Amino acid sequence: MTHAPFDARRRMLSAGLGSLIAAPALIGTPTRSQAQPAPAWKPERPITIYNPFAVGGITDLHMRLLGEKVGKALGQLVLVDAKPGAAGTLAPAALMSAKPDGHQLAVYTINSLRYPHYQPSSWHALNDFTFITGLSSYTFALVVRADSPWKTVEDLFAAGKANPEKHTYGTSGIGGSGHLMMIEIEQKAGARFTHVPYKGGAEWMQALMAGHIDFLADASQWGPFVDDGRARILAMVTEQRLPKYANVPTLRERGIDAVGQSPYGLVGPKGLPPAVVQTLHEAFTAANSAPDTLELLARYIQVPWKKNPAEYRAFAESYYVSVKPLLVKAGLAKG
């Protein structure tokens, strides 16, 4: 099933991108005021952003909207190429054959800082990338269909205790933020469920609405479905209640100390020249702060995650080290 406003937004963004492809002359460098400096770098051909999740999800919509704005600012098309699978790590992996010239970029999720700890990879999570800018962060919750018999998170946990592994939940993949979050929740709640991985939010929402899975434990692709009454939040997996859903408790309030964390940003191949990094950071930061971008993020319960190149790399270096003990505890990595 699809959500009409969501579908309309997708058609609008797709149509916008299509018009840019059909008439690239419309994306020329915009008129600049005398006080506004020219970019430190100008792309010579279209820029491709590799998206780690399936077409139609919030990440896809976000990148397409940013791409339209950055394309106009830099005078070249910005195309979005989906590379779903492997817990969101195929997009940055695609940069291993890219030249460090700014024309190939990738959305880099926090999963890419975990994956090499438990799976052999042809790339290093820190050394093989240039960190450009933070973009946003997913908001996590436990969500069921509106007609689910479970009215509270206690009902969900009781079902997971009475019939271990009978009930199913969807996430973005093995070792992803939702999966790790559920491992922690299961350990603390004493309940067991069966994990069903998907390639992106559009897929797992279709699965939930069709009854193929019993609940979601992942990011806020569920937002519009909750807002129109087709889905229901049992608990937020956030540090505190959200103003939009002020009546929905957090897991912490229910005695389960678990919080979902999953920011994402933009990276390029290692060795990107400083001028390229500066230009891309400034262009994407401006696009990410535009009113219609903020409206799109708010619709999916997200906010900008502002990180300059140095701050983004510092975050990545710290998290890469600190996450390993959790992966070992979850049985996904060796000590």
Rank of each mutant, 00 (worst) to 15 (best):
G57P: 06
L234S: 01
G211Q: 07
N288L: 08
H3C: 01
W204D: 12
S148N: 04
L296G: 02
Y169V: 01
P325C: 03
N127L: 14
L208V: 05
V226F: 08
L327W: 08
A298G: 15
K270D: 09
Y198I: 01
K83N: 03
T279A: 03
P84V: 06
S177M: 05
A141T: 07
L13G: 02
Y198L: 05
G176R: 01
Y115M: 08
M96E: 12
I27L: 14
S121C: 14
L242E: 04
W123Y: 15
E68V: 10
R114I: 02
V55D: 12
P243D: 08
D292C: 07
P24Q: 10
Q104C: 07
N111V: 05
M63E: 09
A235K: 05
L95I: 00
A22D: 15
R252H: 06
E184S: 13
Y312R: 12
E239M: 06
L242R: 06
T31L: 14
P224E: 05
L297V: 11
D81S: 11
N247C: 04
I301C: 10
M205K: 00
K69I: 10
A235M: 05
H62E: 09
L105S: 00
L142Q: 05
G211C: 08
S262I: 04
E203D: 13
G175E: 02
P197M: 07
I49G: 00
K334D: 11
T238E: 15
G229V: 06
E184H: 09
A73Y: 11
I47E: 03
E68N: 09
Y320T: 10
V248E: 04
T89R: 06
Q76C: 10
H117N: 01
P263T: 08
M236I: 03
G223A: 15
K69L: 15
E186A: 07
A286P: 01
W222M: 06
D128A: 14
K307V: 03
I47A: 06
